[in-house]
């Protein structure tokens, strides 16, 4: 325990004291604050989505979500850029993978369609039950991850991922502009009929945006995973050759 550690512990102790005051004096509200109460009261007539969280993410706070997927896109681009510049010198990086075991290879073949199906279910039911574009996109990306683990040589082409990513991003903007043209504002999802409250095809454009976000987020996560996965350099050299 050097003086440095004691100093850090002391400083964090002060921060902990501040936290302690926050936590000790904390009393949960008896009722929802006005914003949340508004969202709860107008879920049926404004978004048509029974899942309030999805309604907030996609409709009421749609612009934040657009910014978020943009940040995620930038992240995946920067990760790919940073890693592409540090390519291993030729010969230094041998084919370092162990071949996947029989269990993993067979399990992947069995599980991959189920994972894709579950991802599609989570995305499509995002406005009815817990789920939505981000969760479903993460599920799809974990399917890509499983395929990467089972067959390190097999990878989805960067061109395909980039195309899926940019087409769904463009679609997201176009749906937002359609809200501007046919409903009350940018990213307003009510330009499509709200439908019966609680049905699968309801809630205006929310399922559409969920699908687009799911594809975009899934492609971005898959890009990040493939960039960081260790076989990347070797595979790029093969592509170049």
């Amino acid at each position: 325990m050097s003086t440095r550690h004691i100093l850090i512990a002391g400083l964090l102790g002060l921060l902990g004291l501040a936290f302690w005051h926050l936590a000790a004096d904390y009393l949960p509200d008896a009722a929802l604050n006005p914003t949340a109460a508004y969202y709860a009261a107008h879920a049926a007539d404004q978004t048509g989505a029974p899942n309030l969280v999805t309604g907030i993410i996609i409709t009421w706070r749609g612009l934040d979500t657009l910014g978020e997927v943009t940040v995620l896109f930038l992240t995946s681009a920067i990760v790919a850029l940073v890693l592409a510049q540090s390519k291993a010198p030729a010969g230094a990086a041998g084919p370092g993978f162990l071949p996947a075991g029989e269990l993993l290879a067979t399990g992947t073949r069995m599980l991959l369609p189920l994972i894709a199906l579950f991802g599609a279910y989570v995305i499509a039911n995002g406005h009815l039950s817990p789920g939505g574009g981000f969760q479903g996109g993460a599920v799809l990306a974990s399917g890509v991850l499983l395929a990467l683990l089972a067959q390190p040589r097999m990878r989805i082409g960067h061109a395909l991922l980039a195309r899926v990513e940019s087409v769904s991003g463009l679609g997201y903007i176009l749906v937002g502009l359609a809200g501007l043209a046919f409903a009350s504002g940018f990213l307003d999802t009510a330009f499509l009929p709200l439908g019966r409250f609680g049905a699968l095809l309801s809630a205006g454009a929310i399922p559409l945006i969920s699908v687009l976000i799911g594809l975009k987020v899934g492609a971005e996560f898959a890009t990040i995973l493939q960039s960081l996965e260790e076989g990347e350099d070797a595979a790029q050299e093969e592509d170049a050759a």
Binding site: L32, A36, V53, E68
Partner: peptide, 18 residues
């Protein structure tokens, strides 16, 4: 319960991975 912090945290988790 209040859905707004949940939407916020959903965003924070995804950005956290990035």
């Amino acid at each position: 319960i209040d859905p707004v912090p949940q939407a916020l945290v959903l965003t924070a988790i995804v950005i956290g991975l990035g």
